[in-house]
Design a protein around this nucleic acid. Sequence first.
DNA 1: TTGTATGCGTTATCAC
DNA 2: GTGATAACGCATACAA
Lengths: 319, 319
Amino acid sequence: MINRSPLLSDATRDKVETAIRKIGFVPNPQARALALRRNFLIVLLHDNPNAQTVLNFQTGVLQTIRDSDLALVVRPVDRDSADMLADVRTFLEKQRPLGVLLLPPISERGDLADLCRNAGVEYVRIGSAMLDDEAHCVASNDREVVSEACQALIERGHRRIGFVRGPSGFRSAQEREDGFRDTMAQAGIALNEEWIAQGNYRFSSGLVAGEQILKAAPRPTAILASNDEMAAGVMHAAKHLGIDVPSKLSIVGFDDSPTASHLWPPLSTVRWPIVEMGRVAARKLVARYLPDFDEGAGPLPTRLASTFIDRASMGSPSD
Amino acid sequence: MINRSPLLSDATRDKVETAIRKIGFVPNPQARALALRRNFLIVLLHDNPNAQTVLNFQTGVLQTIRDSDLALVVRPVDRDSADMLADVRTFLEKQRPLGVLLLPPISERGDLADLCRNAGVEYVRIGSAMLDDEAHCVASNDREVVSEACQALIERGHRRIGFVRGPSGFRSAQEREDGFRDTMAQAGIALNEEWIAQGNYRFSSGLVAGEQILKAAPRPTAILASNDEMAAGVMHAAKHLGIDVPSKLSIVGFDDSPTASHLWPPLSTVRWPIVEMGRVAARKLVARYLPDFDEGAGPLPTRLASTFIDRASMGSPSD
DNA sequence: TTGTATGCGTTATCAC
DNA sequence: GTGATAACGCATACAA
């Protein structure tokens, strides 16, 4: 009754609401949770190695729920653990949260989404591509923006372009690689598989990949890495080999991590709107329970665009 | 009764516990919360700009509560907001969490700790120095480890050493500066205030500070920065001025952020045990409510030691 | 030691 | 539209 039942006149509602304010009534979330068999919590399930990504996403979610009764609980999971699903199920059954937000890479797992559905917990999946229907998904456009970065290299005159892939099994890695391959094919530039190496999104793998690619003859004049950490590794490889960046080698990363702007030269990269994705994802979740929570906030997008950032690590080929 | 009352024989307890297991009884946290007027939540209150720090701390806390009924909720606050205290009070009164973990810099505010005490919520403060009694505090040893870093510079032959301070009002900034000044004084090396600049822990402030310090004549042969971001700024300033690191200038940071190892040359820095601080802080909190939670885990330390990491950004002075 | 009634603060369901 | 009452599931106090 206190929560805007439709069969209640505006007049009485007003009276009630002023009364509420006067005596300073504060509802008790515990009692609500017991009666409704649902806790006013949003759970962030994640298994993401990138601290900045996780925290920025948290920031977005918290911006959405700032003035509500909701709270954000964080729950890291171990994607390699055999009983990850069982753990999550137990957690959801105990906490009975309003909903779950799934960050990549575990957002890509269909079994987790199924689990949430079966447990009667709403969910939204974050990803580099459409992982689910619009109501259950917020996605960036990794493929398109990598294509943009690759085109920028081509426009500067690069033809010999290398690529450091992300870990297999990650949708983001696949999307970024597709963006690279598609663009090169469209430009009619043949790929040299010697200039393509596998990484795992970590610095050390970028270093190894860079050393491997840069000892090819001829070597590429530019390398696209699937994230900033690996791009930093490539940059270290170039330093070890005495190859100047950007005059002899252009490097482009992905993430716009703090590292990107701290490197020398500052790293060209891609900034994805992770804070806004957090805001939108939380709104999608909450809107289902509290229809008037979102009033006037406009429609909820599903695809959010990343931005290519052109910094000094990118130049024109010198030979 | 289910929670090990002292007036209950071991035999009955055993019987009950096997029965519990047999029928798969799962207590309902919402009902417990209502009856006990206390939620089984740990709140992380923070206003810390460093994502890696916050996330690593979360990791530590979550390691402690992994197999318990506890959940971690995160609550960023705005230390500049006038009604920050009122917001926190409302939040605590509504959620009634088991306890609160306070990260720097807001952990340094006595009024916040008082607020928690008055609201009947246990708290533990994290800091660079003893901010409270042992039961309510987990601290690193910033002063000592900066002293260690400074001594390392002196041992390499540096005498002209500069310093980039952190923001005023931050205890960590004060501790680190004290460590620097004390060590220089003990070594009998006069300070040159031209080589000391004020920063705010951000990259851009380090850049400005570096430019300012490096245009002094003579300029220092080494600069200690109060964190890695500012150290990266100093490194950029050196690049702009054509001063080689480390042959012409040694740089040391603080935090061991991802940036530190990605820079070229890799940055000497200080790693503080933030994950373990999270683990310990959570245990201190929980131990008060669940005395047997911690059984056999040993005593809970209050001061945890940081480690100086000697990387390539530190060399001997060349002139 | 065991059983039983009552409270926790809200929502939902009925009568009225 | 209003008002009383029964859940919700656990803890506690008191009686047996």
